[in-house]
Design a protein around this nucleic acid. Structure first.
Lengths: 172, 172
DNA sequence: ATTGGAAAGTCAACAAGTCTGACGTAATAA
DNA sequence: TTATTACGTCAGACTTGTTGACTTTCCAAT
């Protein structure tokens, strides 16, 4: 199990980045960075009886208006019961609108109201600001590497989902 | 708020990576990657009535044997009541040992038992395997960028904590 | 040596967010 | 007509987090 110099050292290549120590540092970096990454929205959400789940729903409804409940379920990877509770409060509070599907009337299509869009913007702005500052500090090459590693960490299905996300309809 | 080409474009530099779209892609990549990142340990933990909190405690006790409860509290960023519940079950189940501090006898110093170390290894092996495969797929330069961006995302205090983590006493 | 305060542990209550399982309704598909 | 799908809901459970209040232990400063 011990592996100071990486597995299967190849010719003269530098594999120091594959030592268990380096891998552990990466794991810890993910833990700390993710905590920071969610900290700003969490602060805002706490003030209004919402949680991360609400943020995630708002995010994906924003990025793909009119998506169905099932589609949202898929991308979030939670049960419908769990999502439903979140969705119900968002609809009750007038942040999300649920319309009967025009193609298939069993489906519900989800949209942000103006109020919902405003909160989404407010939440994502803090997160984008952090990301922007991190990206700027690290530079384009580092950003490319960052994205490469993150994608390589995803499961096949998750990666497929991630790549299938459409481009945003409106820039913001 | 709209920002298609990045803020403060500097001379001929390529700032495409700072568009709001790119930032959003980064945010989503973090979300999906983190989910994948925790998926493997979560599966193991679910089988034994433990959760992520137990994993995190085991991880940091492993990496710094003999650390005090307060130190662990600090690095985890939770309340002592929350940690205490987790710690109590780990101690009851014989995975963690709590010894009275030798310097300050109010403190409790935490150690993994052999059983605890075994579980920690099992959990972290899955995570390291994923990380290793991602690192290998992306290459050393990408890994450097990954780490740079993650560190740039942390708050000042978190970054300080992260950098203050000692090197592992035993390699594994 | 006494006292003040810090460190740790404990108890209780609560909330968010997740899960499973079961059931009902409406609409589509076979 | 029947089976299946999409959605919503109710009930019950668990983990993880929170606050608040209280006790015990022990160090350190007066």
């Amino acid at each position: 199990m011990q592996n100071k110099v990486g597995i299967a050292p190849v010719s003269g290549e530098n594999l120091l980045f594959l030592t268990d120590d380096q891998l552990r540092r990466g794991i810890e970096a993910m833990f700390f960075a993710y905590r920071a990454f969610t900290a700003d929205p969490d602060l805002i959400l706490a003030d209004m009886d919402y949680g991360r789940a609400h943020h995630r729903a708002l995010h994906f409804i924003h990025r793909d208006p009119g998506l169905t409940v099932t589609a949202l379920l898929d991308v979030l990877g939670v049960t419908k019961q769990s999502l439903n509770r979140v969705l119900r409060t968002l609809i009750e509070d007038g942040l999300v609108e649920s319309r009967v599907g025009h193609r298939d009337r069993r489906e519900r299509q989800l949209f942000l109201t103006e109020k919902g869009a405003a909160l989404e913007r407010r939440l994502s702005e803090t997160q984008r600001a952090r990301m922007r500052s991190a990206y700027r500090a690290a530079g384009p090459q580092a950003v490319a590497g960052f994205r490469q590693v993150l994608e390589a960490m995803m499961d096949r299905d998750t990666l497929r989902q991630f790549k299938a996300l459409k481009d945003l309809p409106d820039p913001s």
